[in-house]
């Protein structure tokens, strides 16, 4: 059985009962340990889909099963949220404590764990995210990237088996972005199931499978490699905008140049055309 299973989901916001459906007929299975990206333009429904996976939203039709638990089952909601952690775009919105250490301890403290266990989990989470040196630092003195790592650490201390990242890098500068992306890959290597919601096509390359949402429906379920083979025009039709390098490759192909399918970075392209001796 899949780890997360969405069966024929419809969704609209409860506060807007007369509006159109935000998600229509979504079926999706995610296996344990998988690294899945969800990509789509703004308001394509990708954040909503993420939130259905840890019972922040409940479907109006269909079922979401997380590790055998139905999100509609009220008694299971806490267990589901412990299983599936969520990281949002803006870390400032989820940081509450006055020091890094306390922030990371907030979750386990609320689980009423023994002190020893809390200490252990906090240390582990800070080690994993490289925040140990900042244990006593107030979060507002951290850089944007470090704050996002802190948000990750405070979810990690809950020992989730799955983490959903909702555009975790879109507010970060390029340097911090690299730092956070690297961490996400490491977490997956340690066995945590990852769902990465993004609108940056290059980030999709980190995962093994990508889902494209367009106007509330899944229009593609493929490997990142396959996605990068699509022409710029076809991508634009589903409101995806490829990175510059893909635009360049796509134009070169149109001009009749033959470029093998596995090339999606500037260095790949350069060494293909101009191999170093």
């Amino acid at each position: 059985m899949s780890f997360i299973d969405l069966q024929n989901i419809d969704f609209r916001y409860p506060e807007e009962p007369d509006e159109q459906l935000v998600l229509k007929g979504i079926s999706l299975s995610i296996q344990k340990g998988e690294f899945l990206s969800i990509i789509g333009a703004n308001s394509s429904g990708k954040s909503t889909l993420g939130r259905l996976m840890n019972a922040l939203y409940l479907p109006v039709k269909g079922t979401v099963i997380v590790n055998g638990m139905n999100t509609l089952d009220e008694e299971k909601v806490f267990d589901i949220r412990k299983t599936v952690g969520m990281i949002f775009q803006n870390p400032d919105n989820q940081i509450v404590a006055t020091t890094v250490e306390e922030e990371v301890a907030f979750g386990p403290e609320n689980l009423c764990l023994p002190n020893k266990e809390i200490r252990k989990r906090v240390d582990e989470a800070m080690d994993l995210t490289g925040l140990k040196p900042y244990a006593q630092t107030p979060p507002h003195l951290l850089s944007g990237g470090q704050k996002q790592l802190l948000a990750i650490a405070s979810v990690l201390s809950m020992k989730p088996s799955c983490m959903i990242f909702d555009e975790p890098t879109s507010l970060l500068d390029p340097k911090s972005r690299k730092m956070v992306v690297k961490k996400i890959v490491e977490l997956n290597q340690q066995g945590i199931t990852i769902v990465l919601i993004t609108h940056r096509m290059e980030e999709v390359l980190l995962s093994k499978r990508v889902i494209v949402l367009y106007e509330g429906q899944i229009v593609k379920d493929m490997t990142p490699g396959e996605l990068f083979q699509m022409t710029e025009q076809d991508l634009n039709k589903i409101k995806l905008y490829p990175p510059e390098i893909i635009k360049i490759i796509s134009r070169m192909k149109q001009e009749g140049m033959e470029i093998p399918p596995h090339i999606y970075s500037t260095s790949d392209l350069v060494s293909f055309i101009c191999p170093s001796k």
Binding site: I245, I248, T266, S271, S276
Partner: peptide
């Protein structure tokens, strides 16, 4: 810029390539 990265990279093979172009076409 990525386009500059490509053009500069290719200048190793082609000394005369103009790498001051930003327009992709």
């Amino acid at each position: 810029p990525q386009v500059t990265e490509v053009l500069l990279g290719l200048s190793k093979c082609w000394k005369d390539i103009d790498y001051s172009i930003f327009n992709l076409d």
